[in-house]
Amino acid sequence: MGILQVQNVNKSFGGLKALNNVNLDIEEGSVHAIIGPNGAGKSTLLNCFVGRLRPDTGTVKFNGRSLLGLSPHEINQVGVARVFQTPEIFSDLTLLENVMIPALAVRDGAFRINGWGRVDAQADIRERAEAMLADVGLADKLTDHSGNLSRGDKRRLELAMCLVQSPKLVLLDEPTAGMSRADTNNTIDLLARMSEQHGVTKIIIEHDMHVVFSLAKRITVFAQGHPIVEGTPEQIKGDPKVKEAYLGGAQV
C-alpha cells in the first residue's frame, strides 16, 4: 500500500488520449521519478494529482483518501505540496513573508481572518520560516524582495515554501528546467539533502537524465500516455523498451 495510488486513470482531450489506463503506486518515503518523451502525459498526470484536471475514469488516492473533486487548496491541506517548472513565488513580497504564508496556511487553515494581530508578532511562524530559509541557504536574504532573486535562489525559496508545511508528498515538475549547470547541481544537492533530513515522499517529473539518475530511487517511464516500464535506475538504464520510447526504435 503506497502513499499515492493511481488506478485505471484515463484522460482524453477531444480525440487525443493523454492518459491511457495508468496504474501507479508510490511507496512512502521514496523518491520516484516519472520520465518520458514530450507528450507522454507526465504533466497531465501531475495535474490530476493536484486538482487541476479531473480524470475521465479511475481513482487517485492519497493515504487511502480520494483526491478527485478536491480543489488545489484542499489537496494542499491534506499534505501535498507542489513545485512548479517556473518557480511560483510571491515576487512582490520579502523572502520571509513568502515562507510565512505557507506556514500560516498550516497553522490557520484555508481561511481565517486575523486582521488585528501583527504579522511580526506571530513568533512561532516567524521562527519556523527563518529556520527553513536558513536550511535552504537563504538566511542572509530574509527581508530582500524575492522578485530580485536568481533563478536558482527562487527555486530554493519555493522549496522552502513547500517544506515549511511539512508535507507528506512533494510533487516536483521539472525542478531544474531552464537552469544553468551550476544551478542544476546546486538544486540536486539541495534536493538530496532535503530527502535525507525531511524524508518526504517525492515525485519528480524530469527530462534531464542527470537529475533523474542522481536523485531517484525508482523510475517510471511513460510513453503515449501509458507507463511502459518501472524499476530502479539500473534496471531502467539497460531496458530496451526505454530506448525505443525515446528514440522511436531507431538503431543507434
Partner: peptide, 28 residues
C-alpha cells in the same frame, strides 16, 4: 491594523500570485 496583519499579508499574496496561494492551501 489590517495592512500589518496576517489577513493583510494574505491579501497582498493574492495580488502577488493567486496560483501559488491555491497551491499553498489557501482558499483565496
Amino acid at each position: 491594523r489590517l495592512f500589518r496583519s496576517p489577513f493583510g499579508l494574505m491579501l497582498m499574496a493574492i495580488k502577488s500570485n493567486q496560483n501559488r496561494m491555491n497551491f499553498t492551501g489557501i482558499n483565496t
